[in-house]
Simulated assay, not measured.
Amino acid sequence: MPLVAPIMKVQACRQYGANILVRGSDIGECRTIALKMARQQGLVYINGYDHPHILAGQGTMGLEIVEQVPNIDAVVVPVGGGGLIAGVALAVKALYPHVQVIGVESENCASFSAALRTGAPVYTKPESTLADGLAVPMVGVNAFATAAPLVDKVVTVREEWIAIAILRLVEQEKAVVEGAGATALAAILAGELPELKGKRVVIPLCGGNIDTTVLGRCLERGLAADGRLVKFTVTVSDRPGGIAELTRLMASLGVSIKDMTHERAWIRSDIFSVEVKVMCETRDHEHYLQLQAELEKRYKIIRFAVPDIVHAESDL
């Protein structure tokens, strides 16, 4: 397993009796190390996303989908090495050719999209991503040959939407899903697949191995991208009542303060002012905009540190 593998995945495999070696910066380097070990020790190497038997096993999920869900219009599948979408596409298309099979990748590790552009698997250096299970630098050769003729479309999603998908699943479905498993839902929420509106769509939540600390970061990042966790810096009067006025304003708007710090030594305005850094919670994006408007009315120097907030899901 690579150095970036979640501790939960490593420990779970060890509990099943596996001998785990944590080496290599990504899955591609892991594969190279494993092949050398197989050659030196006379072992059999089984690629976890490209061995023909693995692809056949992945296809059983496609069979289960069509058996359990009638009248499907589309199946949206997370894509890393390509094994899952290859097996699912082969099974689904063989039985129901009209069903769309759509792949979704994180924009930080879009090796399948790169392969489609060039017509063959190519090396793409993956960047850090919440979908660590999809961070495969080069899509499998067998997987690509199987999936490419069958997959109708492949889209990529931003990391913010993966975090929001994890957050939505926890809040609305009470399901803990890792980044790789939530990527397909992220594409729907991000509005990357508007043609599926009103249709019967299957989204496999394939993966729940996420470290508790990473889950906490994902939830916070999702809240920030959702406009519900806001950080801003404002300059207020350092005279008695200056900060109290700020907190009263926030309280009157129903904003909850999570953290607040003061900066006096490095402030560039007059000595009777203090720079206050605030992290707070709002109900939604509209509530955040209300807070921003009221602060800008009363204070001259104010800076918001909030990621791009998009709301494609509200239009679905």
Rank of each mutant, 00 (worst) to 15 (best):
H51S: 02
H53Y: 14
H53M: 14
L55N: 02
A56W: 08
A56T: 12
A56C: 07
G57Y: 03
Q58C: 07
G59W: 07
G59P: 07
G59V: 13
M61T: 15
G62T: 07
L63G: 01
E64C: 08
I65R: 05
I65D: 06
V66A: 10
Q68H: 13
V69H: 09
V69N: 06
P70A: 13
P70Y: 09
P70L: 09
P70G: 07
N71Y: 10
N71R: 12
I72P: 00
V76F: 10
V77K: 04
V79C: 07
G80Y: 02
G80E: 03
G80T: 10
G81L: 01
G82H: 01
G83C: 04
I85L: 14
G87V: 14
G87W: 08
V88N: 01
A89E: 00
L90P: 00
V92N: 04
K93R: 11
A94K: 15
A94E: 12
P97D: 09
H98L: 08
H98P: 05
V99D: 08
I102Q: 02
G103F: 12
V104N: 03
V104Y: 05
V104K: 03
E105Q: 15
E105F: 03
S106C: 06
N108T: 11
N108W: 06
N108K: 15
C109N: 15
C109V: 13
S111D: 15
S113T: 14
A114M: 08
